[in-house]
Design a protein around this nucleic acid. Structure first.
Lengths: 343, 343
DNA sequence: GGTGATATTGCAATCGATTGCAATAGGGTT
DNA sequence: AACCCTATTGCAATCGATTGCAATATCACC
């Protein structure tokens, strides 16, 4: 409709147009019942006609609420590349939708960028009312510090039980146990673990791996635990390089993420090792691609939908003066071709 | 260090502590050279000691700049699930890092959530100084409207040449042509196209597909163009369902994204069709997983790094009163197993 | 007609930082 | 000693919306 200079309107413009005071206009727009119904409608009509939007900045300043949540994605200092695991996208999407549904905006940042002081940067500066931290990294002290600073925040990760902040996450230990028990049931005797146990979540998965072995009376071999970054590339390299010596006798792999598993699968197939006949393989996450590689990947499905919603719910509760509690989400084993031998 | 009540400090507190006026304190913190060096240092020292951070809201209100960019991810009305393609994560990560490097915050939203009026919501409300729109969807009118509203924004997508806003994107047509020419060089004669040509980017890829066929003197068969969503699932289903009749004679597939390609590959392999011997396959994007499926996927690599940086650079230039121009980024064919027959 | 209750509306302060302009203090010059 | 210049600093207005409290209007009821 032609180019408008589009000098943005302010509340006072709307008030003037409606012939009322700014206070009345403000109250009318916020549906304050104390305002006469006719007045309210008139003001709202005029505001709508002019596409007026309250200046979020001014409102935030006055109300001391930003209605914004900062989401911080932590990841390896080592991998240090941009966020990369598809699993992150999953949960990020859920969080984004859920926050919007609740009337909050989402400020996104990666740990790479926001170097040090999230508290100051996001909270003290009033950029955000609260924080969602995804992944604890290698036991990041920054997270622990936050809890001493009175900042409302929740973490996606693995609770150790000793931390002073709410942690929402999958039951990693249980999931790993399911996975490895399944491998054992398929006849595997020597099962490798691919993952970096310095991450709390992975550590839990490692414990679950050990639980399953122990329950089956199999002795865990430390040589079969291979530190592996969260990438298909490293899954490939580790499998290739480190497992070489073991390949003859290895008959199962539990990878701490689907991306890692796919890398491992590539390495196995490249060496003409049959999956699952010679080596059975299970991943973790159930990213979209897992069902579509060949053979399709058995994996432990995390309920990202529930997780994202819960993160948001707990954080908002915390912001509104309530309590937020840690919570463990159930996981589910998805059996596919990469581990099913009888099929 | 114990729990501090942590009443957030304001500039006036800092000023008082330093024994200067608020104006002096403000100027000192902003390194205004008019302030005496000693005074400046003293104020900065005190601010640092108390971990003081300027209230971003108040600053924004006063300066009329939010130093925030809204990133909007558009996607299918149909698929309507949360953002899902790994490719998005790639470019999103680059944009996030680049914005932070430039001192901007990033507000993220998906089209699902922000229903209609981004202009009002993000710009008029002063939530953001500018917008980055990723993907044009099925020729979204909202994008065109933005350009008439004086909002600084840039789009990741495909330029048609007629739009009134800057579009940054890969040379999709050229990329598709490379891919399909490569397939033809591998001996393919009947090549299918998987992708939804209602998206401008995909439309360009389709044109490139036709270019290559034409250059080789092969007649394009409309029946071989299959509308396919951006998911492995739909790639699988389309390949399975629609290509059935053609499978005997089909010898090549060009998928408009790697995710689609992986779904297609699954369908092919499931039906014992040898890739690449019977059907050669090429994707688009070069997501991380493409190198690690089996056979590994030949694909057209988009330069997300350059793209993200360019989007940010152009937008900031536009915000600072300069011009922003559309730009086409070169792409590269990455040859892998899924299409290499002679190897 | 008087009085108190109720429904609406407006005044003015406030959120915290920034900045144009005025004020002050030294310093140098003649 | 008078005067101008420069270097620093402070005063006060401003950004736009919200909200406690006061003001006014309206109405019912005795």
């Amino acid at each position: 409709m032609g180019i408008k200079p589009a000098k943005t309107l302010t509340l006072s413009d709307i008030a003037r147009l409606a012939g009322v005071s700014e206070s009345t206009a403000s109250r009318a727009l916020r549906d304050n019942p104390v305002i006469n119904a006719q007045t309210r409608q008139k003001v709202q009509q005029i505001a709508a006609d002019h596409q007026f939007k309250v200046n979020a900045t001014a409102r935030s300043l006055r109300t001391q609420k930003s209605h914004t949540i900062a989401v911080i994605i932590l990841f390896d200092a080592k991998t240090q590349q941009a966020i990369t695991d598809p699993f992150l996208l999953d949960i990020l999407g859920v969080i984004a939708d859920e926050l919007t549904r609740q009337g909050y905006d989402m400020l996104l940042s990666t740990s790479k960028t926001t170097d040090k002081d999230w508290r100051s940067y996001y909270f003290d500066s009033k950029r955000a009312d609260g924080l969602i931290v995804i992944g604890q990294g290698e036991h990041d002290e920054r997270v622990e510090q936050l809890s001493h600073a009175g900042v409302p925040f929740v973490v996606w990760g693995a609770a150790s039980g000793t931390e002073h902040f709410p942690v929402i996450g999958s039951d990693n230990r249980q999931g790993a146990q399911l996975a490895v028990t399944h491998l054992i049931a398929q006849g595997c005797k020597r099962i490798a673990f691919l993952g970096d146990i310095r991450h709390s979540e992975i550590e839990m998965r490692y414990l679950g791996y050990q639980d399953a072995l122990q329950a089956a009376g199999i002795k865990a071999e430390p040589a079969l635990q291979l530190n592996t970054d969260f990438t298909a590339q490293d899954g490939y390299l580790q499998t290739q390089q480190a497992l070489f010596a073991e390949l003859g006798s290895l008959d199962g792999i539990f990878a701490a993420s689907d991306a890692i598993a796919m890398g491992a699968m590539k390495a196995l197939l490249e060496h003409q090792i049959k999956v699952p006949q010679q080596v059975a393989l299970v991943g973790f996450d159930d990213i979209a691609m897992s069902a579509y590689c060949t053979p399709s990947l058995t994996t432990v499905k995390q309920d990202t939908h529930a997780g994202g919603k819960l993160l948001v719910a707990q954080l908002l509760s915390r912001i509104n003066g309530g309590k937020a509690a840690s919570q463990l989400l159930p996981v589910k084993l998805i059996e596919r071709q990469s581990s099913l031998r009888r099929n």
